[in-house]
């Protein structure tokens, strides 16, 4: 790399350097050299670590989680770039990026059926099933969440909808649920269904607003209509396949 420094720049730099030396402060250049050397040492430590424990990361989900949490606590994202040395030397990158690929593939295969929203548990099981052929590695939902966190960057969805008791829904298509729709899901999560009356009672919404949200959800494919629930069919019940637990146990072909 050629440095083409003009006359003005040289003077300015010399002046700054002189000022710093007067104050006894370290020059950025010196610090940079120090950083470079520290990085070198760190890299060889990581290499050493990799030689001993690289397999552990792939096999042991607890170890992996610890690793991730420690990285987070020191302000490092080992998955940011495949050129990062964590990724290169420890193979952490490949593990999560491949998981990302599998997650996307599972979602693509089921999106048309569930409108792009799936319980995390179901996503986890489907991914585990699709991996069985290639490796016997342990996988945790924590791993899935970390992989999803990276997938968000591609700009096409992957938001999480949090329900009670730690249940999470994964939305793999872009376009977040509106606040109203989100609230509907929260209210419906136990029974997987809801009526206009439920919304009026539990959320104190007006009839129009309640009707509109539910119809919007039918319109966008999130909700199904059930006309046989009420006495004399007076009350339409709206159902959410994504909250319906029986669908978790469906086999891979449904």
């Amino acid at each position: 790399m050629n440095r083409r420094v003009g006359i003005g720049a040289i003077d300015k730099k010399k002046l700054t350097e002189a000022r710093f030396r007067d104050r006894g402060e370290e020059l950025a250049a010196d610090q940079l050299r120090q950083l470079s050397s520290q990085l070198g040492t760190l890299k060889s430590k990581v290499e050493e670590f990799a030689e001993k424990h690289k397999n552990e990361i792939r096999k042991n989900l607890e170890f992996r989680r610890q690793f991730q949490e420690m990285c987070a606590s020191i302000g490092v994202d080992p998955l940011a770039s495949s050129k990062g040395f964590w990724s290169e030397m420890l193979g952490v990158g490949d593990f999560y990026y491949e998981l990302g690929v599998q997650i996307v593939e599972v979602c693509m295969a089921t999106n048309h059926k569930n409108g792009g929203i799936m319980p995390l548990e179901e996503l986890f099981q489907r991914v585990v099933r699709s991996r069985r052929k290639t490796s016997g590695q342990q996988l945790s939902t924590d791993d899935i969440l970390r992989a999803i966190d990276k997938l968000k960057i591609l700009g096409n969805g992957f938001t999480l909808i949090k329900l009670d008791r730690g249940r999470i829904l994964v939305q793999s298509v872009p376009g977040e649920l509106s606040l109203d729709q989100n609230q509907v899901i929260q209210v419906a999560q136990e029974t997987a269904c809801i009526t206009v009356l439920d919304l009026k009672v539990k959320l104190k919404w007006q009839e129009e607003r309640s009707k509109k949200v539910l119809q919007d959800m039918v319109s966008s494919g999130f909700a199904w209509v059930d006309l046989q629930a009420g006495v004399g069919n007076s009350d339409i019940v709206y159902w959410f396949p994504t909250l319906f637990s029986a669908s978790f146990n469906s086999d891979a072909t449904s």
């Binding site: 998955l79 940011a80 770039s81 495949s82 050129k83 990724s87 990158g93 490949d94 990026y97 491949e98 990302g100 690929v101 990276k150 997938l151 968000k152 960057i153 591609l154 700009g155």
Partner: peptide, 11 residues
């Protein structure tokens, strides 16, 4: 197959 690309790198 190996040495996969991260989402950030791809973007």
């Amino acid at each position: 197959g190996f040495e996969l690309v991260s989402p950030e790198d791809l973007l």
